[in-house]
Design a protein around this nucleic acid. Structure first.
Length: 278
DNA sequence: GAGACGATTCGG
DNA sequence: CGAATCGTCTCT
């Protein structure tokens, strides 16, 4: 059947990509950490991204004017603990190249960390299933799932079953196209820019992120979706608070695993208590 | 194959 | 605050 064919095709390309990546990794391991070998076109970013993501790192990269998948963040960016990746993603730009070849792009302003077992909020809490498998794949793998007929997107981090949920973006490029994508779902409705991507499923609608197309994409290699640098976010502007809509997660309900940029208009929900405590 | 459920969204 | 709406999982 068609779905079976698709699935096996995807698995095939995934395993090839992971072989390529393993080669790159092993070359890293054998080189001095300060003079790491880096895939062509990634030099500036890779060197910088190996350092602390929350300190100054971006000035040089802003000069980059040619955007392509080869500029995507490399494995070392994603291969870090989930909570750290959730912070590091704030301020970075998510780029989706549409079927028409158009860049749909927004800056990440809100994330949540899901840690895998024993995090009762995580889809991966009880272990690997067909549905959540992407959470267990290499750091930098997209995990897209369906919820109430919508999609949400995560990025796998270091740690078994750990991934970062993208909860909100600030739209940056080709906003009219994003509006059209939202309007497919709710025809006639108008959207202000800050209302386009202020929720995990809204950002998927706006960037045409679907499970079919994006789940299990390797964001270090994909030509459909990847990350680019944006403005530096100062650590003291990051609000650290409880996650949203996980009331079933028992003692994990109150753990501070959500992160957002204070004062950004595109954040889905403010936590005034957490902000007061800053 | 029926039934339940959900890391959401929208409209009233 | 309740309904929508649908893929996935868990039984029967």
């Amino acid at each position: 059947m068609m779905s079976t064919t698709k699935r096996s095709a995807r698995k095939c390309s995934t395993s090839i990509a992971s072989k390529i990546r393993k080669k790159l990794d092993s070359s890293d391991v054998h080189s001095d950490s300060k003079t790491k070998k880096i895939p062509k076109g990634n030099e500036k970013q890779s060197i910088k991204l190996s350092n602390d993501p929350n300190t100054s790192q971006v000035k040089q990269i802003k000069e980059t004017t040619i955007y392509s998948a080869t500029k995507a963040f490399d494995y070392t960016f994603y291969n870090r603990p989930c909570e750290e990746l959730a912070r590091a993603l704030l301020g970075k730009k998510l780029v989706r190249l549409s079927d028409k070849g158009e860049r749909l792009c927004g800056t990440i302003v809100e994330t949540e960390a899901y840690l895998g077992h024993p995090d009762k909020g995580a889809h991966s809490y009880k272990g690997k299933t067909n549905k959540n498998e992407a959470m267990f794949l290499e750091p930098g793998t997209a995990y897209v799932y369906h919820i109430h007929s919508y999609c949400c997107m995560n990025i796998s981090s270091k740690g078994d079953g750990a991934a970062v949920l993208l909860r909100a973006l600030e739209p940056v490029e080709n906003i009219p196209s994003m509006i059209k994508l939202r309007q497919k779902r709710t025809p006639g409705k108008t959207f202000k820019s800050h209302e386009l991507c202020n929720g995990p499923s809204k950002l998927c609608l706006s960037l045409d992120v679907t499970k079919d197309q994006i789940n299990k994409e390797d964001m270090t290699k994909s030509t459909k979706i990847w990350m680019e640098n944006g403005d530096e976010i100062k650590p003291d502007r990051i609000v650290h608070c409880k996650r949203i809509n996980i009331s079933y997660a028992e003692e994990w309900v109150d753990k501070p695993l959500r992160y957002y940029i204070q004062g950004n208009k595109c954040v889905s929900k403010l936590d005034k208590e957490a902000e007061k405590a800053m």
